[in-house]
Design a protein around this nucleic acid. Structure first.
Length: 643
DNA sequence: GTAGGGTTAG
């Protein structure tokens, strides 16, 4: 430790020197410091102005400016300065090489290599830069070649190789190099542990972390690896393993010590652990930790609020929202989307309007909320207001409005949004899926087919579902099944949604045997548990075909109580095949399930009447009157306020 | 002024 008086003396010395301000060299030194400070704090344009106005520059001045361009990935500008500058030193060359090497693509890497070969003097940084450039481009053989032939390696060279191997999936070479390296620092251990995590070797990563931490000392940098591991366990749902690790990390925060740099839990550690619990749906454990936390940050609060939002109990979310010191955009959005999720659009809207600074995501959240709650008018009105207020939309906004068009089966609107998509966003796969779904559901199969065909292979199952569903629900059963077969050939795993469409296609095409076969393969080949919708479709298929007994057996075998769709299918099949007895069973079940509906009564009445069973028909009519059932007005999709 | 590693939300 340097005695305090010397520090004072020395600082006095410097200020005296500064006050004199006579030396030009010192002036340039100060200006260079200023220039690099501007660049590091992101004030590039000010830096550029300063550079242009500087009367005197030395190599460091030029290098700073080059590093600014390299950081902004403006490689051409960087090269221009490099070519212009009067005296290049090794750092100038290294900067240029790093600019080329951090770009992906062999053209840049080649140019980096040219410079590397041309430069008058290489140092270890030059070699390391090239090695990491090759590693980033997946060219580990060349990286290895350089590594082996370099005159003098340091710990950075080893770390770069290890990360390179991991990034290219070569866990065993990474491990071999890590074991072989003559000395390690905390970056080596972090690189090793994080590489193992990236390659899915979580337990191995924990073992390594504990081994090297215990052996070489728990450097404070290692907390980052611990945090990575806790988060990774959380992703895999292994919340107990995450907690075990968490408990092993010392914590001083309870006593709120003034921290030096020591190995202990930090705010990210706590947040990650809380997040594990939230992901696992264990809100109580999450809250317990949250309450123990001394230094909560915005992420801690938001994670907890989101936890409550996800399990839908909003009251506690609101309490936390009100208690948190500085709610940010995300906190507001959580409240908006939370209220929307529980169907309370009024409160969602209230929070949306109260937000101090609305931005794109808040608009999107609110519009998506309206869409999810089928308040299509609300969604469209808000979208129109968004345009009127000059807010920019993005693909999420348009995706929601496409979903609105789908919900309304409004092809005109959907086509307008399609135009907007083409005009204003770079369409990604999810928005193309939204378009396919919209066109499919609205019956514009040609349009949806065009977009589907344009998708790059392998196409996602969502895209397949959209196209199969479109064909299946618009009477093109065989085409739908053809799509399903080619999807299977491409080894795309179907989902339960795929099978709803497939089974419905079989029903509409009258393919009973195929229906059964697909239903069975759903479980045996793909391990998908049939839902009630699948049973309903198969019951419909079998019953329509006149196999009413088989249909009833199928219903009895279901693990669910039959719903109105199922009894509805049975009832209409009974009408088709004139089975009055079973029709009565189905109709009575429907009357119980939908006491206010007249449909079952009317159908049964007609069947009795057609069969000449007038007594029974009259009885149905009486029953209908006794239960005060009226014939319903035709249901209209058009909002009553328009009529 | 240059090379390697590491965190948490949506």
């Amino acid at each position: 430790m340097v005695p305090r008086r010397y520090l004072l003396n020395s600082s006095r010395f410097w200020s005296t020197l500064k006050a004199a301000d006579s030396s030009k060299a010192d002036d340039l030194y100060t200006m260079n410091k200023q220039l690099s400070h501007l660049i590091r704090s992101g004030k590039f344009h000010e830096a550029k102005t300063m550079f242009d106005e500087m009367g005197k520059r030395n190599t460091v001045t030029w290098n700073s400016m080059i590093s600014g361009y390299v950081k902004r990935r403006e490689i051409t500008q960087a090269r221009k300065l490099f070519d212009e500058m009067p005296d290049r030193d090794t750092v100038s060359w290294n900067l240029m090489i790093s600019g080329y090497a951090s770009y992906l693509g062999c053209r840049f890497l080649e140019e980096g290599k040219n410079l590397f070969e041309q430069m008058p003097m290489r140092d270890v940084v030059s070699w390391n830069t090239m090695i990491s450039g090759y590693a980033k481009n997946g060219r580990m053989d060349e990286a290895k070649g350089l590594f082996e032939s370099m005159p003098e390696k340091n710990v950075v060279s080893w770390n770069a190789m290890i990360t390179g191997f991991f990034d290219n999936g070569d866990t065993s070479s990474a491990t071999e190099y890590f074991k072989r390296m003559p000395e390690r620092d905390s970056a080596s251990v972090n690189a090793f542990v994080s590489g193992l995590v990236r390659n899915g070797e979580l337990d191995e990563a924990v073992r390594a972390l504990i081994e090297y931490g215990s052996r070489d000392g728990w450097s404070e940098d290692l907390i980052a690896s611990c945090n990575t591991l806790i988060a990774a366990y959380g992703q895999k749902g292994r919340v107990d393993d995450a907690r075990k690790l968490f408990d092993q990390i010392p914590s001083n925060s309870v006593q709120r010590k003034t921290r030096g740099r020591v190995f202990e839990r930090n705010v990210v550690t706590w947040n990650s652990m809380i997040m594990c619990y939230v992901k696992a749906g264990d809100i109580f454990s999450a809250r317990e930790l949250f309450d123990q936390m001394v230094d909560k940050d915005t992420i801690s609060w938001n994670t907890m609020i989101n936890g409550y939002v996800q399990i839908l109990d909003m009251e506690e979310a609101l309490n936390l929202f009100n208690a948190m010191p500085k709610p940010d955009n995300m906190s507001w959005n959580s409240m908006i989307s939370g209220y929307a999720q529980v169907g309370n659009l009024e409160r969602a809207r209230e929070y949306f309007e109260m937000m101090p600074q609305k931005y794109l995501v808040s608009w999107n959240t609110m519009i998506a909320g309206y869409d999810k709650n089928k308040d299509y008018k609300g969604a469209i009105k808000l979208f129109i207001r968004m345009q009127a207020e000059g807010e920019k939309h993005d693909r999420h906004t348009l995706s929601s409005i496409l979903s609105v068009s789908t919900g309304l089966l409004n092809l005109q609107l959907g086509m307008q949004i399609h135009q907007l998509v083409s005009k204003s966003v770079i369409p990604d796969v999810p928005i193309k899926n939204s378009l396919i779904t919209m066109y499919s559901k609205c019956g514009a199969l040609m349009e949806s087919r065009i977009i589907f065909d344009e998708l790059k292979s392998p196409k996602e199952v969502i895209s397949w579902n959209a196209i199969i569903g479109g064909y299946a629900s618009h009477g093109y059963a065989l085409e739908a099944l053809e799509f399903f077969e080619s999807m299977k050939k491409k080894n795309v795993q179907p989902t339960y949604i795929t099978f709803i469409s497939v089974l419905s296609a079989c029903t509409h095409a009258g393919l009973v045997d195929e229906g059964w076969a697909y239903f069975k393969s759903m479980v045996s080949e793909y391990g998908i548990e049939p839902r009630i919708e699948h049973y309903a479709s198969l019951v419909d298929n079998v019953a329509r075909h006149g196999q009413l007994e088989e249909a009833m057996d199928l219903i009895k075998s279901m693990p669910f109580e039959p719903d109105k769709e199922i009894w509805g299918a049975v009832l209409s099949a009974c009408r088709l095949h004139n089975n009055v007895e079973l029709a009565r069973v189905a109709a009575e079940a429907l009357m119980r399930l939908e006491p206010e509906s007249s449909a079952a009564y009317i159908l049964l009445y007609n069947m009795y009447a057609e069969a000449g069973q007038w007594d029974a028909a009259a009885e149905v009519r009486e029953m209908m009157e006794r239960n005060n059932i009226r014939k319903q007005k035709a249901f209209s999709l058009i909002d009553s306020s328009h009529s």
